[in-house]
Design a binder for these strands. Structure first.
Length: 943
RNA sequence: GCCCGAGUGGCGGAACUGGUAUACGCGCACGACUUAAAAUCGUGUCUCGUAAGGGAUGUGGGUUCGAUUCCCACCUCGGGCACCA
């Protein structure tokens, strides 16, 4: 047998597959179909990356398996070729982007072919091809016609380095996502796409697709759906109103001020009434000057100024509250104004502390005792009581008064009922009665809480509405207390540390912390207090009730913003709009599409932020399609998310010049959407969301059969360099797949990248480890050169069928690493026993073939390609061992193993275990309490 | 701060639904073949202990006959979001 010469074999079969077109998807026919999709690559000058190979191989394995299972498979490839790197290269070198793109795609194509992917190369698409972007432009025009594409003067994120407007999504921590340079806010007219109109559906329809849960979560977070209320605050002596958005309408009675975003339109409208306009205006200018980075800086100390002369009126209690402007309120979320409830919102709390605003509690926490002697007794009614907890400080020392109860295991502050009295009166009375101290000074209340517990001394469930109060004794003057009180508890003075050790009731702890000034916003659920007729309602129920009572509206808001769609760049799809002096914006007639990019001399964007296209007067100046008058073309281009928002549709019918794809082709391939789409987590919030949005739009136009583009979405982990750091050119730790293919072969590289670790997790590259994959393939090669047995050894046959089962199932769950491990185990076993039939070995080659398509094709005997052969089925009878090993444990510790036959029943096995020589000494002289048998696994003897 | 995910040998990692922890691979050590080296093959490889046996899956508790797996608290790392009311 010849040596395993991967170079020769791989080239030979790649050429043969191309010639025989075995991976071409058939358009006609009735059989079952499978559409497997990977994110089409951006053909960068750096060439194919090992990361591309990992994700492409995974879907290649799945596609190859589907083909062998009899599916008509579409596994296409194309180029997402518009974009900044190519343009920047053009700026630097002056070489036309088309030329660079052509070079790069040629290189990528060659490299991808050298890995042996089963792409249908006849359906290659390229987003920069005018025949392709004609339809990108066409879709834009449909959006324009439906009012979803509009021009708007907005603050955009401007990258000072790229000289380009960025979408919110492209700004990371105030820096440009692409170049890492500084960004600033600039006001500019931009084309926008109204993705927010689809926000609700983009959220809701996630229920119906099979995406990894973490992908759904990320999408949902990004969309940021939030249900709440819009409530209007009148302004004193003005017809204007402040509309706020809140998710906590239940806390309306706790509003102590109202905050507007500095950019809020009311600020200017109310100018005549504002008595400190200079101060307000200065603050607004300061905020504008602040870069995005400063505004989101880490310490984020909140700032703001009060708008004097303006008072808002709380619709719940007609209280007048001050109005502030502060930049912690965002103009473009909700209504740009919030009601501040410092007691129950952390941001408002911090702001209130800094600017000395009132903090008013309206939600009391509810503490339920469920353990110990005070645990509530189920099925008993609650007796409601108003109670008070008084913290009493010593007249001269830093000590506090506590009661040690004699009748039950309670250690408390001074407690008692209030009988409807004010806290300072009720508290003082209780202190006198229970402790005898006479000269008491009321300092402050400490908040409210509800507590449910069982009172053993009264034998009843209590529901206490507790108020906390803080008192100081003026002197030690003390009178005798009644015998009754004396028998109830002892009085002790404790230091702070001692108090903290013994006080365990949660409401007491809260009051204690409040007394010490360690208070914080309470944002959890609870019972309403200080809220007029809504008192005692649960805060959740109160949200709707209070909204209704003040004439508010229940509304849903989203974090998602409309998509800034224009770029001031050359290398993108021209936006097909004409500006006419008379008619305004006029869409380019569909028959004139595509609007192609003109050839320009310089690709440098202009300093005033215009695209290089703006100085192409010949191209820019045109006639208005409507009035035939003087007009100019739009010089902004589309972002490179445009072409990738619908490319998967084009694959179904890539050469169609009349439609973006024929209905027939779409019905055939997209009947349920793309069956399986794998890509990177980095595209979860942008590409995935954008393309879902476009697809839903096309669905509404009845152009595509489903409202969701992708039925199933999975994601791969990144490949990191050795040592777990990112691969990067500048560090010089990148791996060129070409070198690996040359040295070890494409099959080895494929196996290695699938074996390297769990597919969905990031893994570190290790050149040292590749040899293992190569050795595995060499063993396969060597075995095929041996003479085969007429019949496969019985145990080996069982292992083969187990392996077929495991590989079949592992591919579906993308557990490629364990599938390969199982095949390695099998091959190791074959080497040991050396008796496998030719037929059985071929079954093995078949399950290996999706992973290593070249070597298996070479070793496959039949004239027809192994890749069109039928996927092996495991034999249910043959995956069960006739006898196997189980372990025997004593008290959960393994003591011995024994062989049993599959037909032995439980009683016999248990008996055999108990009589085992090794086991006997372990159970001798001890009582066998239980014997547990787990089928096919173990016997556990409990003594 | 919030939301995900993950912590297992020297390394990458495996373990079904709670049932022999460390499969498979790399590396390492020793041996065989060789004048030698590479390649290949074989044996060994969590840890303490001569052994019997004990201890180990980030830490500390809990549930269970039995926990890497379930529950509670905490620590570390990775990813996402980040003043979204």
């Amino acid at each position: 047998m010849k040596n395993y010469d991967h170079n020769k074999i791989e080239k030979k079969h790649q050429a043969a597959w191309d010639k025989k077109k075995i991976y071409h998807a058939k358009n006609g026919g009735k059989g079952k179909r499978f559409y497997g999709l990977i994110e089409f690559p951006y053909p960068s000058g750096a060439g194919l990356h090992v990361g591309h190979i990992r994700s492409n191989t995974a879907m290649d394995i799945i596609s190859r398996k589907r083909r062998m299972e009899g599916y008509n498979v579409l596994y296409p490839i194309g180029w997402d070729a518009f974009g900044l790197p190519t343009e920047n290269y053009a700026i630097k070198t002056g070489i036309q982007p088309e030329k660079v793109t052509k070079q790069n795609t040629d290189m990528f194509r060659k490299q991808l072919k050298s890995i042996g992917f089963s792409f249908d190369w006849s359906r290659e698409v390229n987003t920069t091809d005018p025949k392709y972007y004609k339809w990108t432009q066409w879709i834009f025009l449909q959006m324009y016609k439906k009012g979803l594409a509009y021009k708007s003067k907005t603050f955009i994120n401007w990258c000072l380095n790229c000289k380009i407007g960025l979408a919110n999504e492209e700004v990371v921590n105030g820096k440009c996502e692409r170049c890492g340079g500084d960004t600033e806010k600039r006001e500019k007219e931009q084309w926008m796409l109204a993705i927010t109109k689809y926000a609700d559906r983009l959220d809701k329809d996630l229920d119906d697709v099979d995406y990894l849960e973490k992908i759904k979560i990320q999408q949902r977070n990004w969309i940021g759906k939030s249900e709440g209320s819009e409530i209007e605050f009148s302004i004193k002596n003005s017809p204007e109103k402040i509309k706020v958005f809140t998710t906590r309408a239940d806390t309306l009675f706790g509003v102590t001020y109202v905050v507007l975003a500095p950019e809020h339109e009311l600020v200017n409208k109310l100018k005549p009434q504002i008595s400190n306009w200079n101060e307000v205006e200065k603050y607004i200018l300061d905020v504008k000057k602040k870069s995005e980075l400063d505004r989101t800086a880490e310490d984020k100390e909140k700032t703001g100024v009060e708008v004097k002369g303006i008072k808002a009126i709380n619709p719940a209690n007609w209280e007048e509250v001050p109005v502030w402007i502060a930049d912690y309120v965002l103009v473009n979320y909700g209504t740009g104004a919030v009601m501040a409830v410092p007691a129950h919102d952390e941001r408002d709390f911090l702001f209130a502390k800094k600017y000395n605003q009132e903090i008013r509690q309206v939600v009391a926490p509810l503490f339920i005792t469920t353990e110990g002697e005070s645990a509530i007794r189920k099925d008993q009614p609650f007796v409601k009581r108003d109670t008070i907890v008084s913290i009493v400080k010593h007249w001269s020392e830093d000590k506090y008064l506590c009661l040690m109860w004699k009748t039950q295991n309670w250690k408390t502050f001074v407690i008692g009922g209030t009988d409807g009295e004010d806290p300072h009166i009720a508290g003082a009375r209780e202190i006198r009665e229970e402790t005898g101290y006479q000269n008491i000074k009321f300092i402050s209340t400490l908040g409210r809480a509800h507590a449910q517990f069982y009172a053993p001394h009264k034998k009843e469930n209590r529901w206490a509405n507790v108020v906390g109060a803080y008192f100081e004794l003026i002197d030690g003057k003390k009178e005798d207390t009644s015998d009754n009180e004396k028998n109830l508890h002892d009085i002790v003075w404790l230091t702070k540390e001692e108090v903290e050790k013994i006080i365990d009731k949660e409401e007491a702890v809260i009051f204690w912390n409040n007394m010490l000034g360690k208070d914080q916003a309470y944002t959890n659920e609870g019972i309403l207090v200080n809220s007029g007729k809504f008192n005692d309602l649960s805060n959740v129920d109160a949200q709707k009730e209070i909204t209704k009572a003040v004439g508010g509206k229940i509304v849903t808001k989203y974090k998602l913003r409309d998509w800034i769609f224009s770029r001031q760049r050359y290398w993108g799809e021209p936006i097909p709009i004409i500006h006419c002096e008379k008619c305004g914006y006029v869409p380019v007639p569909e028959k004139d599409l595509p609007v192609t990019l003109p050839k320009v001399k310089s690709y440098v964007p202009t300093d005033n932020g215009e695209s290089p296209l703006a100085i192409m007067h010949k191209w820019v100046n045109t006639k208005c399609p409507k009035c035939k008058g003087k007009a100019k073309r739009e010089t902004d281009t589309m972002p490179n998310w445009a072409g990738s928002s619908w490319y998967f549709l084009r694959y179904t019918d890539p050469k169609n010049n009349k439609e973006l794809a024929s209905k027939k082709a779409l019905r055939a391939w997209m009947k349920n959407g793309v069956d399986w789409y794998n890509g990177g987590m980095e595209h979860t919030t942008l590409h995935l969301l954008y393309s879902r949005f476009w697809h839903k739009f096309l669905y509404d136009l009845k152009l595509v059969p489903t409202s969701e583009p992708y039925m199933k979405r999975t994601s791969h982990g990144m490949i990191l360099a050795e040592g777990g750091v990112k691969m990067s050119k500048s560090v010089g730790n990148t791996i060129d797949p070409k070198d690996i293919v040359k040295l070890y072969g494409a099959d080895t590289l494929r196996i290695y990248e699938m074996f390297i670790g769990p597919f969905d997790q990031a893994v570190s590259w290790s050149t040292e480890s590749i040899i293992g994959s190569r050795r595995f393939l060499e063993k396969v090669w060597r075995i095929s050169g041996n003479s085969f047995a007429s019949k496969t050894d019985k145990e080996l046959e069982t292992l083969l069928h187990k392996t077929i089962k495991k590989v079949t199932e592992d591919i579906e769950s993308m557990s490629f690493n364990t599938a390969i491990s199982a095949m390695m185990v099998f091959i190791n076993e074959v080497e040991k026993t050396k008796s496998i039939s030719k037929k059985d070995f071929e079954l093995f080659l078949q399950i290996l073939s999706p992973f290593a398509p070249h070597i298996t094709e070479e070793l496959w005997i039949s004239k027809k390609s192994i890749h069109v052969s039928k996927w092996p089925k495991w034999d249910k009878k043959k995956v069960i061992d006739s006898n196997f090993k189980i372990v025997v444990q004593v008290n959960g510790k393994v003591r011995t193993e024994m062989m049993i036959d599959s037909d032995m029943n439980e009683e016999i096995i248990k008996k055999q275990a108990l009589e085992d020589k090794v086991i006997m000494p372990w159970i001798e002289g001890r009582e066998v309490k239980r014997v547990i048998y787990v089928k096919g696994r173990l016997v556990n003897i409990v003594v």
